[in-house]
Simulated scan of single mutants.
Amino acid sequence: MDTSAPVRILTVCTGNICRSPVAERLLQAGLDQVVPGGFHVSSAGTRALVGEPMQPISADIVRTFGGDPDGFAARQLTPRILRGVDLVLTMTSGHRGEVLQLDASLLKRTFTIRELARMLDVLDRRAADAPGQPAAVAPSAGGGTNAPDDDSRLAANAGLWRGLPARAAGVRHLSLPADPTDNDIVDPYRRAPEVYREMEDQLAPAIVSILRHARLNAPLSPDAAQL
């Protein structure tokens, strides 16, 4: 495996026109700011409306948070799309089950997006409480604290994220929801605008948690390492 290859993240919902596109475009926009070239985020649907653009209200949500909804086209989830993915983020527990029906090898790399966000919050709180732990620095590929060049920075980032599922699973018991439905993002398709706002209210905090974790654990850029 090319250790400097981008970390591949796949978001999954049903039609791939409301929820997973919002997660895709906002995660990509945010992660590009943290580690440029370090991530490739895409999406698919378990029963996709293939070729359809993002729903207009979903597109408005993406723009509101600084993402770009243009050029999107829904696609059907297939085993081929799942091949080589580092992390799968589903919008509901049901979608997680459908992913695993297609590729059971992804069991330890597939989470609902809200589930993973809670796990990352636990990991970040632990790191903040641990004495002597520097923030916003990940080990470089060579074992140092500052990545000396772009390739080493990308490799350090990839190593951190490809090891993330195991670390997250280790705190699962500390991040269980009071209600299992709190793992899910509501489906707003063909429903009132208020349901899209409910979707936004559920999805946005999860995206913020993932981006915060990425920022706190990002390897230093070559320029920053000189400061």
Rank of each mutant, 00 (worst) to 15 (best):
Q55A: 13
G51D: 11
P53I: 00
G45A: 07
F39N: 11
G67A: 09
A48Y: 04
V22F: 08
L26V: 05
G67Y: 02
C13S: 11
L27F: 13
F39P: 07
P53M: 01
Q55N: 14
S43W: 03
G30N: 03
R47V: 12
S58V: 01
L49N: 02
R47G: 15
V35T: 12
T64F: 14
G71L: 09
R25V: 03
G30Q: 02
P21G: 09
H40V: 15
Q55W: 00
G30F: 02
V50D: 10
I57D: 06
L27D: 05
G51E: 10
V62I: 13
T14V: 11
P69D: 05
L49M: 12
P21N: 12
G51F: 07
V41N: 06
V12C: 12
M54C: 12
A44R: 10
C18R: 02
R75M: 14
L26Y: 01
L31I: 10
M54Q: 07
F65Q: 06
P56M: 01
V50G: 06
C13V: 07
E52A: 14
S20M: 08
A44C: 15
G15H: 12
S42V: 15
G37V: 07
G38P: 07
I17S: 00
P69I: 01
P69Q: 02
R63T: 15
L77E: 09
V50I: 15
C13I: 06
G67N: 05
V62E: 01
V34G: 01
A74H: 02
C18H: 01
